[in-house]
Design a binder for these strands. Sequence first.
DNA 1: TGTACATCAGTGAACGCGCGTTCACTGATGTAC
DNA 2: TGTACATCAGTGAACGCGCGTTCACTGATGTAC
Lengths: 204, 204
Amino acid sequence: MSTNSSYHHGNLREALLEAGAKLIEEKGIADVSLRAVAKAAGVSHTAPYRHFSDKNAMLCGIAETGFRLLGQRLGQAVDSHPGHPGLQLTAAGVAYVELAIEYPRLHNLMFGGVLAHESVDDSLEEASNQSFQGLVDIISRGQQTGLFRAGDTHELALTAWSVVHGFAMLASTGSLEHRAASREAKLALAHRVADNLLKGLATR
Amino acid sequence: MSTNSSYHHGNLREALLEAGAKLIEEKGIADVSLRAVAKAAGVSHTAPYRHFSDKNAMLCGIAETGFRLLGQRLGQAVDSHPGHPGLQLTAAGVAYVELAIEYPRLHNLMFGGVLAHESVDDSLEEASNQSFQGLVDIISRGQQTGLFRAGDTHELALTAWSVVHGFAMLASTGSLEHRAASREAKLALAHRVADNLLKGLATR
DNA sequence: TGTACATCAGTGAACGCGCGTTCACTGATGTAC
DNA sequence: TGTACATCAGTGAACGCGCGTTCACTGATGTAC
């Protein structure tokens, strides 16, 4: 952080990403302009061009911070249940859903297909792939210990990913409001849905 | 269909919905304007206001046609396996994914949270609820015949819905391209993912 | 069947607006000597 | 340590554009007598 009065901001790139994420959460992706983000960061509306080639690049940057945050949380979920792939999987699923409930519109930016495929940064794509790899690793360890049944690891991971992603989508777009209104109710529901899934992956 | 040269279109509402759905698929929701839809339907850009109160209402109308199409397909899936809830569930799941692959951006309009919650038509909401109810019915029959295990029917339905919704989302946003590029490969994958789920719902 | 008239479904000009992006600029910072 | 200068990170005016919406209008249709 530099002094407020300085002509040079000092940390504008991060400030823009932060302000952008906040604005997206408040107003929705479609209603957030590059100009509004600049204004929220307290800077002229052309300043962002010093740090991003265009608006799309800025959105990619925001999405990337989301993936980084997701990666952290998934890591924590794994670390909190060492040696127990089943518990790790449930915890990771809940953590994922938790993030989607906390930042529904950021989640939508990350996974909703808003960013055109061609226009996505390499670093964003990498961050996204890493998230999936974490899941594959859990499943793989579960298979090695005989907890999960054998079979194409990626395919089981994809099933797990689908459940959690779908549930998060339903949660973040408000489709769950009449079944589970509070945050706690949603997470409890997420836990039980994850358990339903687990039974599908278990050895019989 | 009326003659081309007539001043009155005769069926403009449907024509706009159709042109809109097509445009959305081609250019993405964010890049479709009311004016563009009117133009695609061969009509002045103010004509839509005879049939929709504003742009949002038109988008709701388009989403609603999507839900109606989904309802039809789910009905077909159920009808093609009378008395077999397990097969019905898989078929319904695949049908859902199929639709999402066929019309990825329409699917995104329907479920992606683009339409603000407050601004959604009653008829759109009803169409959406009906889709979920169809799924609940399948699960319920499966429980009655002892194929699916007992428990909160809505919760099992929610698990199924999540898998299929999540998979469809991954398919429609292009996240599956490196695992299953062709339409056929995606559907086959969907089938196996649905089977993984089924094992989670089955009595043990 | 013919005519008058109300109603309906289109048109096209006009509005104000916010957007992304460009450009020449200026103030601050860092470095070489 | 002091000075000249290159580089960097901001500013603000200006651009052209497409948007959603309104308005007074006009052509077509349907109905009553």
